[in-house]
């Protein structure tokens, strides 16, 4: 069962540039990722949009493994700002998991 976390949804909603909603799950990003990150960004973005904070926390290591190299973003057919979205999630995790402000 997924527990919806308002803080996560608010964090994402407050960032106008966050556009994971545009993803239509084609998998180009996953295929191109130099790190071979299976979770990122598609599955992760689904959890985020659902407000599934526990799932996002469980993926912390993957979120911080992203190289921010934009290989995926350069090829994304939906123009998802993947690296920006990942950075926003890092900011959320830094504040809420690591308590660094």
């Amino acid at each position: 069962m997924i527990r919806v976390d308002r803080k996560l949804l608010e964090e994402v909603a407050s960032d106008e540039a966050f556009n994971a909603q545009a993803c239509f799950n084609c998998g180009t990003c996953t295929a191109l990722c130099p790190m071979g990150l299976e979770w990122l960004p598609r599955e992760l973005f689904r959890y985020v949009l659902l407000g599934a904070a526990e799932k996002v926390s469980a993926l912390t290591e993957a979120v911080f493994s992203c190289l921010l190299c934009r290989m995926c973003e350069a090829q994304c057919p939906r123009g998802v700002r993947i690296t920006h979205n990942i950075r926003t999630l890092r900011g959320y995790l830094v504040k809420n998991e690591y308590r660094i402000r």
Partner: peptide, 9 residues
């Protein structure tokens, strides 16, 4: 710091 999401610092 920016890349790691350490936004405040």
């Amino acid at each position: 710091a920016y890349d790691l999401g350490l936004d405040g610092p």
